[in-house]
Nucleic acid binder design. Structure first.
Length: 372
DNA sequence: AACAGGGGCAACCGCTTGCCG
DNA sequence: TCGGCAAGCGGTTGCCCCTGT
C-alpha cells in the first residue's frame, strides 16, 4: 500500500540512491519545498512527496548532525523523555541537529537497554518491580521511630494508605474533584529509613544557583502534605537549613494526630534523602517550592493529568523555569505494610534521577521549556 | 569460510493535526 | 461548520551489517 498522496502513482520505494539524493538536494536548495507533493515531479524523482519530505528532514538537511550521540545528548534524551514520554519530535527539539527518527532509534536501540540494565522501567523511568523488592528487602524495623501508623503502633501488613504531597492549589483541587479511592485502607504509615540519612541542606550552594528565587534564606522548600484519608493538610517548611543536617520548621503546625507528626515528616525527609542522595542538594536547594504562596493559583484546567506530567520538569529548580515550579506536585505515595514498600519510590525516582545523578548537570533541563 | 542470529537504522504506514476554501 | 489536503508524528517493518559459532 502506498501513501495516500501517491497511491495512483508509480513510485519507487526503499533505500535512496546517491543520484536521487542529489536530485532532491539540488531541487530543494534551488526552489525550497512549498508543497512536498509537487517536489518529486519537479525534481524528476519517482518517489512520493511524503518520501521526499522524510528523506530531506531525516538525512539531507544541511543542518543535521550525524554520528553517535554524545553523553550530554543522551542525558538530555533521558531527562526529556521522563517528562514527555515517546514524543520524539518534542525531544528532538532539544537536540540541535538531531531528528525525531534518530532520537527514537537511539532510544530503542541503546538507551532503553541501558535503563533496563539499571533496573529502571524505560517507560516510566521508575524502578522495575524487581528492583523495588531489592530496595525494601530489609522490611520494617520496630526500633525505628519513623515507623508508625495512626494509633502509634508499628504498622502491620496488608493495608495501604494514599498520601499526597501537594500544593495548596492541588490540595484544593483534590478536595473538590479527587476524593480518595474507596479501596484505600485506613491510615497506616509505615515509613522505613533505608538510608539512615538526613536531608542535607547547603545554603551557600543554593544561594549560588542562578535564578534561585530565595537567595536570602538559603533554601526555600515548602511542602504541603495532605493525608487523603484523614483530610489533614499541613506543610513542612525546609527553610532553616543552616545546620548541616535537616532542620525543619513545620509551618502551619504539624499535627501530632493520626500519625502525622514531626516524626512522620522526619521520616519522609529521611527516606527522601535516601532516594535522592546526590541529586537532592541541587534539587532541594534550588528552591523547589511546592506551595509557593505568592504565586497565583493555576487555572483549574491546568490541574489535569496531562498537564501535571510536565511539572517535574523544573525539579532542578534553576533559571526561569524555577518560577513555574511545582504549583502542584502530586504524588500518591503508598505506604505498604508487611515490610514491603513504604514510601512511594516513583516520586523519589522521578525527582532524584532528574538531574542525572546530581553534580549540577542540568543543562538539558534548563533548556526545557513549558511549550512542550 | 559459511551460516545464523541479533542489532541498528532507514524507510514506510497510518493516524492525527492544522490549514484553507 | 465541514470537507479535503498536506504536513507532522509515532509506531512498525524490513534490510543490511556485524558478531559469534
Amino acid at each position: 500500500m502506498g501513501h495516500h498522496c501517491c497511491s495512483k502513482q508509480k513510485v519507487k520505494r526503499g533505500l535512496w540512491s546517491p543520484e536521487e539524493d542529489e536530485k532532491l538536494v539540488k531541487y530543494i536548495t534551488a526552489h525550497g519545498h512549498s508543497c512536498w507533493s509537487a517536489v518529486p515531479k519537479h525534481a524528476g524523482l519517482q518517489r512520493c512527496g511524503k518520501s521526499c519530505r522524510l528523506r530531506w528532514i531525516n538525512y539531507l538537511r544541511p543542518d543535521l548532525k550525524r554520528g553517535t550521540f554524545s553523553e550530554q545528548e543522551e542525558r538530555t534524551i533521558i531527562d526529556v523523555h521522563r517528562i514527555l514520554g515517546n514524543r520524539w519530535a518534542q525531544i528532538a527539539k532539544h537536540l540541535p541537529g538531531r531528528t525525531d527518527n534518530e532520537v527514537k532509534n537511539f532510544w530503542n536501540s541503546c538507551i532503553k537497554k541501558k535503563l533496563i540494565a539499571q533496573g529502571l522501567d524505560p517507560k516510566t523511568h521508575n524502578l522495575l518491580p524487581a528492583s523495588r523488592t531489592l530496595l525494601h528487602a530489609n522490611g520494617p524495623n520496630p526500633s525505628n521511630p519513623a515507623q508508625f501508623h495512626s494509633n502509634g503502633a508499628i504498622a502491620k501488613g496488608g493495608a495501604t494508605t494514599p498520601f499526597t504531597i501537594s500544593s495548596p492549589t492541588k490540595a484544593a483541587y483534590d478536595t473538590v474533584t479527587a476524593p480518595p479511592p474507596p479501596e484505600m485502607a485506613p491510615a497506616l504509615y509505615d515509613v522505613p529509613n533505608p538510608a539512615g540519612m538526613l536531608m542535607g541542606h547547603d545554603q551557600a550552594a543554593a544561594a549560588a544557583i542562578p535564578g534561585y528565587p530565595y537567595p536570602d534564606n538559603g533554601g526555600g522548600v515548602l511542602m504541603s502534605f495532605r493525608d487523603q484519608n484523614a483530610g489533614i493538610q499541613t506543610s513542612m517548611d525546609f527553610m532553616n537549613g543552616s545546620s548541616s543536617s535537616s532542620s525543619m520548621d513545620h509551618a502551619g503546625g504539624m499535627p501530632n494526630v493520626n500519625g502525622f507528626s514531626q516524626a512522620m515528616g522526619t521520616a519522609f525527609m529521611d527516606v527522601t534523602a535516601g532516594m535522592w542522595t546526590t541529586a537532592v542538594n541541587s534539587v532541594m536547594c534550588a528552591g523547589i517550592e511546592v506551595a509557593r504562596q505568592q504565586q497565583p493559583p493555576l487555572p483549574q484546567q491546568e490541574l489535569v493529568q496531562g498537564e501535571v506530567i510536565g511539572r517535574p520538569t523544573v525539579m532542578n529548580g534553576r533559571g526561569a523555569a524555577a518560577d513555574k515550579v511545582m504549583d502542584m506536585m502530586d504524588v500518591s505515595s503508598v505506604y505498604g505494610g508487611a515490610g514491603a514498600t513504604a514510601f512511594d519510590l516513583e516520586l523519589m525516582e522521578s525527582c532524584g534521577l532528574f538531574c542525572g545523578g546530581g553534580g549540577g548537570a542540568c543543562n538539558a533541563m534548563e533548556q526545557l521549556q513549558w511549550d512542550c
